[in-house]
Design a protein around this nucleic acid. Structure first.
Length: 114
DNA sequence: CTCTTGACTGAGG
DNA sequence: GCCTCAGCCAAGA
Protein backbone atom coordinates (compact mmCIF):
# COMPACT_ATOMS: atom_id res chain seq x y z
CA UNK A 1 0.00 0.00 0.00
CA UNK A 2 1.94 2.96 -1.23
CA UNK A 3 1.36 6.24 0.57
CA UNK A 4 0.95 7.90 -2.79
CA UNK A 5 -2.07 5.78 -3.41
CA UNK A 6 -3.73 7.01 -0.28
CA UNK A 7 -6.21 9.79 -0.77
CA UNK A 8 -5.47 13.14 0.76
CA UNK A 9 -8.29 12.64 3.19
CA UNK A 10 -7.02 9.22 4.24
CA UNK A 11 -3.63 10.71 5.02
CA UNK A 12 -5.24 13.32 7.20
CA UNK A 13 -7.14 10.68 9.10
CA UNK A 14 -3.98 8.63 9.58
CA UNK A 15 -2.03 11.53 11.04
CA UNK A 16 -4.92 12.72 13.20
CA UNK A 17 -5.15 9.28 14.80
CA UNK A 18 -1.50 9.61 15.81
CA UNK A 19 -2.20 12.59 18.03
CA UNK A 20 -1.33 11.49 21.58
CA UNK A 21 -3.65 11.88 24.53
CA UNK A 22 -3.59 15.32 26.08
CA UNK A 23 -1.99 16.88 23.03
CA UNK A 24 -3.27 18.99 20.17
CA UNK A 25 -1.97 20.07 16.81
CA UNK A 26 -2.91 22.49 14.08
CA UNK A 27 -4.00 22.05 10.50
CA UNK A 28 -0.80 23.45 9.06
CA UNK A 29 1.35 20.92 10.91
CA UNK A 30 -0.64 18.02 9.56
CA UNK A 31 -0.68 19.48 6.09
CA UNK A 32 3.06 20.03 6.23
CA UNK A 33 3.59 16.46 7.39
CA UNK A 34 1.58 15.29 4.41
CA UNK A 35 3.78 17.34 2.13
CA UNK A 36 0.98 19.76 1.39
CA UNK A 37 1.86 22.65 3.65
CA UNK A 38 -0.50 24.90 1.74
CA UNK A 39 -3.41 22.55 2.05
CA UNK A 40 -4.18 23.28 5.67
CA UNK A 41 -7.71 24.09 4.67
CA UNK A 42 -8.06 20.68 3.12
CA UNK A 43 -7.08 19.10 6.42
CA UNK A 44 -9.99 20.70 8.20
CA UNK A 45 -12.23 19.94 5.29
CA UNK A 46 -11.22 16.31 5.43
CA UNK A 47 -11.90 16.14 9.14
CA UNK A 48 -15.54 16.71 8.37
CA UNK A 49 -15.83 12.95 8.14
CA UNK A 50 -13.46 12.38 11.02
CA UNK A 51 -16.25 11.13 13.24
CA UNK A 52 -16.96 8.30 10.82
CA UNK A 53 -13.27 7.64 10.54
CA UNK A 54 -13.02 7.43 14.31
CA UNK A 55 -10.52 10.29 14.34
CA UNK A 56 -9.96 12.57 17.35
CA UNK A 57 -10.65 15.73 15.40
CA UNK A 58 -11.20 17.66 18.62
CA UNK A 59 -7.43 17.57 19.08
CA UNK A 60 -6.97 19.50 15.87
CA UNK A 61 -7.26 23.26 16.06
CA UNK A 62 -6.06 26.17 13.99
CA UNK A 63 -2.62 27.67 14.37
CA UNK A 64 -3.82 30.06 17.07
CA UNK A 65 -5.07 27.20 19.19
CA UNK A 66 -8.58 28.34 18.50
CA UNK A 67 -11.36 25.77 18.30
CA UNK A 68 -12.55 26.95 14.92
CA UNK A 69 -14.11 23.59 14.21
CA UNK A 70 -16.15 23.33 17.40
CA UNK A 71 -19.14 24.40 15.37
CA UNK A 72 -18.99 21.07 13.61
CA UNK A 73 -19.36 19.14 16.84
CA UNK A 74 -22.56 18.39 18.62
CA UNK A 75 -23.77 21.02 21.01
CA UNK A 76 -21.90 24.23 21.49
CA UNK A 77 -18.96 23.25 23.68
CA UNK A 78 -18.54 19.52 23.15
CA UNK A 79 -15.15 19.99 21.54
CA UNK A 80 -13.96 22.04 24.49
CA UNK A 81 -15.28 19.48 26.95
CA UNK A 82 -13.45 16.69 25.17
CA UNK A 83 -10.17 18.59 25.29
CA UNK A 84 -10.59 19.50 28.95
CA UNK A 85 -11.29 15.84 29.66
CA UNK A 86 -7.82 15.13 28.38
CA UNK A 87 -6.22 17.69 30.64
CA UNK A 88 -6.09 20.44 28.07
CA UNK A 89 -7.12 23.82 29.37
CA UNK A 90 -9.57 25.53 27.06
CA UNK A 91 -11.08 28.94 27.60
CA UNK A 92 -13.39 30.80 25.25
CA UNK A 93 -12.75 28.44 22.34
CA UNK A 94 -9.01 28.88 22.74
CA UNK A 95 -6.46 26.36 23.99
CA UNK A 96 -4.44 27.64 26.92
CA UNK A 97 -0.73 26.80 27.04
CA UNK A 98 -1.08 25.93 23.39
CA UNK A 99 2.68 25.80 22.92
CA UNK A 100 2.92 23.29 25.77
CA UNK A 101 0.25 20.89 24.58
CA UNK A 102 1.12 21.36 20.94
CA UNK A 103 2.12 18.17 19.19
CA UNK A 104 3.94 17.99 15.90
CA UNK A 105 3.40 14.97 13.60
CA UNK A 106 7.17 14.75 13.23
CA UNK A 107 7.38 13.72 16.88
CA UNK A 108 5.57 10.54 15.97
CA UNK A 109 8.90 9.40 14.58
CA UNK A 110 10.50 9.70 17.99
CA UNK A 111 9.85 7.68 21.11
CA UNK A 112 10.07 10.22 23.86
CA UNK A 113 9.27 8.39 27.07
CA UNK A 114 9.77 11.44 29.29
C1' DC B 1 -13.74 22.08 -17.79
C1' DT B 2 -15.39 26.16 -14.79
C1' DC B 3 -17.12 27.99 -10.47
C1' DT B 4 -17.96 27.80 -5.54
C1' DT B 5 -16.92 26.48 -0.97
C1' DG B 6 -14.03 25.88 3.18
C1' DA B 7 -12.54 23.06 10.63
C1' DC B 8 -6.37 27.80 7.11
C1' DT B 9 -2.32 30.95 7.01
C1' DG B 10 0.60 34.81 6.32
C1' DA B 11 1.18 39.55 5.13
C1' DG B 12 -0.20 44.34 5.39
C1' DG B 13 -2.69 48.42 7.44
C1' DG C 1 -2.81 43.49 18.91
C1' DC C 2 -6.98 43.39 15.88
C1' DC C 3 -9.13 43.48 11.24
C1' DT C 4 -9.02 42.76 6.27
C1' DC C 5 -7.31 40.87 2.01
C1' DA C 6 -5.44 37.52 -0.86
C1' DG C 7 -3.24 33.05 -1.87
C1' DC C 8 -3.57 28.48 -1.28
C1' DC C 9 -5.50 23.48 -2.92
C1' DA C 10 -8.86 19.67 -3.11
C1' DA C 11 -13.65 18.16 -3.68
C1' DG C 12 -18.35 18.68 -5.26
C1' DA C 13 -22.00 20.61 -8.41
Amino acid sequence: MKPETLNFFDKVYAVAKLIPYGRVTNYGAIANYLGAARSARMVGYALNGSVVKNVPAHRVVNRKGLLTGKHHFEGTNLMQQLLESEGIIVKDNQVQDFDKVFWDPSESLEDFQH
